[in-house]
């Protein structure tokens, strides 16, 4: 049993959690929802174990390093932060419908990591540029931020559904959190994510300065992270202007998450040098 096979198995646990949350919501079965929480917790535990085991394995291979060094490992960590943040919110707000809109994202991240033929799940030794503690701080802060933005994305999506029928006349929407709760939750998560995104950009800049002697070089990845930052800064300010509540904020949150995804995946298709392969 190695970490990759555990993490592949966890993909299905997260898939199951998502399915149970959706089932519980659509068919109003609170018991099934609790089973969903159980699956999410088991998944998170397995995800954690997988990350730790992978760390240990890398030391056994004699190339020990924190498992945060390539696309595969970052996706695993991304799924972990999403589920952790979601479970925290589930506890605080006592609502499992949010799970139906967020755990599937963790499932997709892990499924992509485990099943995509383009993603190498072998443990690789670190190339010189990646040998830096700033890299670890950079990846952790970025993905904690991304996790919060992912959950905010799911919640914005719920907002847009709910706001057409705020009274909850449709039975599917009756147990949704109220629109102002969704709006507030979105804002809280965006603030949390913004703090970590800022820290992520900053640790990245410090790392770049220690590796290449420049803290900012306008390469596409850096620029896209700044674009993402601008979008969320817009959201924070727009929210304080009258009339910018709810729907438009939800759209901005979704746009912000699209920018996150582009920073993460899309940039590799652009010309530039900020890839994990960089020597």
């Amino acid at each position: 049993m190695n970490s990759s096979s555990i993490l592949s198995a966890i993909t299905f646990v997260y898939g199951l959690a998502g399915f149970l949350y959706i089932f519980a919501w659509v068919f109003k079965k609170p018991g099934v929802g609790r089973a969903g929480t159980g699956a999410a917790i088991i998944g998170l535990a397995g995800n954690t174990a997988g990350i730790i085991l992978r760390w240990v394995e890398s030391y056994k291979l004699g190339i020990g390093h924190a498992p945060l060094s390539n696309l595969y490992e970052s996706l695993i960590f991304f799924a972990w932060t999403m589920v952790l943040i979601y479970l925290f919110i589930e506890r605080k707000y006592a609502n499992r419908i949010i799970g139906a809109f967020t755990t599937p994202l963790a499932f997709l991240a892990l499924a992509y990591a485990s099943l995509s033929p383009n993603i190498d799940d072998r443990i690789q030794p670190l190339i010189p540029a990646l040998k830096s503690n700033w890299l670890i701080a950079h990846v952790i802060t970025c993905f904690v931020g991304y996790g919060a933005f992912a959950v905010a994305f799911g919640i914005s999506f719920m907002y847009l559904i709910k706001h057409r029928d705020p009274e909850g006349k449709s039975t599917l929407l009756s147990r949704f959190p109220r629109v102002n709760v969704l709006d507030e939750l979105n804002h809280q998560l965006v603030m949390f994510g913004f703090l970590f995104l800022s820290a992520g950009i900053i640790t990245g800049a410090v790392w770049a300065n220690s590796a290449w002697g420049r803290y900012w070089g306008w390469d596409p990845k850096e620029t896209w992270s700044l674009i993402t930052w601008f979008i969320y800064a817009t959201l924070l300010h727009a929210r304080m202007m009258r009339g910018w509540h709810g729907k438009r904020i939800a759209y901005l949150s979704i746009a912000g998450f699209a920018a996150v995804l582009f920073t993460y995946f899309g940039v590799n298709y652009l010309p530039g040098l900020h890839s994990y392969q960089m020597g």
């Binding site: 306008w218 620029t223 896209w224 674009i227 601008f230 304080m240 202007m241 940039v267 652009l270 530039g272």
Partner: peptide, 24 residues
């Protein structure tokens, strides 16, 4: 005005994209 802030932030975001599409 914060309206200017919003216009500026969104303009900066939009124009910054251009420089990632055209290699600099």
């Amino acid at each position: 005005s914060i309206r200017l802030t919003i216009v500026l932030l969104l303009t900066l975001a939009a124009t910054s994209i251009v420089g990632t599409l055209i290699p600099q």
